[in-house]
């Protein structure tokens, strides 16, 4: 079999189960084997998703959620990377931060929400902070362990050529730990999505999380599913975007 054929075959096999499930759901719902109020048929969900997408409500909520998520991601990942690298380079910084970071890392993110609302108020700063907080620690630990796993031989080579601490960090530790950092960023992106949706459930009037939650409360289940589909699509798109960034930033791993 040629390479394109193999790819097509793999895609076709991968589609069997999802397509079968959707068909089963369609039949089960339209024949009322399951309660179509709670589990509306996929066709109805698609129509509702389409209506709301073209009516502008869904795009607005998607934009709001994406904005919060990306802001939180950036405000968490950038300092996480910088502080993680610093902790990897300096034993003092590592000893200073490691215990506190380990303790905060295990706090379930959503448990922080009331405290964060008290500190920031019911606003976007609070929602962005929730995301940034969970992203920071994941990226911090992946950068730290990335630096700790850098092969000694590269450090020795750079130092023998005269690299000081700053040059060493920029020319060796940063690129050498990039694969570990990107693995951390992928995990952090997943966390960011969970946290922003959970936060919007509880503390927002717009955004995809709020849409899902409010639809549920008024028993508008097709709209609820439309929100779930939009969140899923957002997650997939962000994961792809991150892979594209990694592809560009880590060319030696292609």
């Amino acid at each position: 079999m040629s390479a394109p054929m193999r790819v097509l075959r793999a895609i076709a096999i991968g589609l069997i189960l999802p397509v079968a499930l959707v068909l089963l759901w369609q039949v089960a719902s339209s024949r009322e084997w399951i309660n179509s109020l709670f589990y509306p048929a996929p066709w109805d969900v698609m129509q509702r998703t389409w209506d709301q997408a073209s009516g502008g409500k869904l795009p607005h909520d998607a934009r709001v959620t994406t904005g919060r998520l990306l802001a939180g991601f950036a405000f968490g990942a950038a300092p996480g990377l910088a502080v993680g690298l610093a902790a990897g380079v300096s034993r003092t910084i590592r000893q200073l931060l490691y215990p506190l970071a380990t303790a905060l890392y295990v706090v379930p993110r959503i448990a922080m929400l009331p405290l964060v609302l008290v500190a920031f108020g019911l606003n976007d700063e609070a929602r962005v902070f929730m995301v940034a907080f969970s992203v920071f620690f994941i990226v911090f630990f992946s950068a730290l362990s990335g630096v700790e796993q850098v092969d000694r031989i590269f450090v020795d080579a750079a130092r023998a050529f005269g690299a000081g601490k700053v040059r060493l960090a920029a020319t060796v530790l940063l690129p050498a730990s990039a694969p570990a950092v990107f693995a951390g960023l992928r995990v952090a992106m997943g966390f960011a999505l969970i946290v922003i949706v959970g936060t919007e459930f509880l503390a927002a009037n717009d955004g995809l999380g709020a849409r899902i939650w409010l639809s549920y409360q008024i028993f508008d289940f097709p709209s609820m599913y439309a929100g779930i589909i939009a969140v899923t699509a957002l997650g997939v798109l962000l994961a792809w975007a991150l892979l594209a960034v990694e592809w560009l930033a880590v060319p030696w791993r292609r």
Binding site: I153, T171, P175
Partner: peptide, 10 residues
């Protein structure tokens, strides 16, 4: 150095 010392990222 002794071993594989080329920087893989360059």
């Amino acid at each position: 150095p002794q071993g594989n010392s080329c920087f893989p990222w360059l």
